[in-house]
Amino acid sequence: MATKFINITLKIWRQQNSQSKGSLETYTLNKVSTDSSFLEMLDQLNEQLISDQKSPVAFDHDCREGICGMCSLYINGRAHGPATGTTTCQLHMRKFKDGETIYVEPWRSKAFPIVKDLVVDRSAFDRIQQAGGFISINTSGKTMDANAIPVPKQNADKAFEAAACIGCGACVAACKNSSAMLFVGAKVSQYALLPQGKVEAQERALNMVRQMDEEGFGNCTNTGACEVECPKGISIENIARMNREFLLAASKSNK
């Protein structure tokens, strides 16, 4: 399609560091190519800010092809912006109109404290993973042949769908309760669906949920917002599966 250029107004959250108070600042940016991605538009803004001797906007990004999960941004009231199934790095400026005002805010959650401007600290996800998001085997490669245990294709496919999570935190950002249940549910499900992970599925659910609660995420009220905003389309049936695993484990727990 033919490239067009648009002029936009940006309202961007600026915050010096985790301690300081932030505010929305207004910027105008002209001649933005509609072929640019949203992050390339921010690059352009930063280029302008640097040449104006102003401080550039800090935002997280890395792979810019929708898989690393580093980019975030709450754009015009939605996690990763107006397009569904899309990370911010794959959101293109053709989705916006000439003259439009665009709000850009960081993920908002107590468990994701702001580092600077639009950058938040998502290490809570890492700690949840460390609490049980693994299969407890050593790394010798000598466990057993990869084809020793057949896995029904249907389960393998479902496990893969759950494993597609990129850990971006859009689920938490979009949830009105800042709940991390979709993230945790996806991880618990991936392993629970595979025979290799089934062995410690329940202990895993207990440990990951405990850590999730400790991190200060809110509770799930099944609004389903996470599922809609997840750039990888992960289903809330994974949350239900986690609930089952957790309840089974809780009922058997003898500690």
Binding site: K11, W13, L24, Y74, N76, G77, R78, P82, Y103, E105, R108, S109, K110, A111, A174, K176, N177, S178, S179, G216, F217, G218, N219, T221, N222, T223, G224, A225, V228, E229
Partner: peptide, 22 residues
Amino acid sequence: NKKARPQGYAYSKPAANSSLPS
């Protein structure tokens, strides 16, 4: 749940992802 998000969004469009009653 309120405590889990001490600072809200300046601009949010929750209608795009969830039903009003929920």
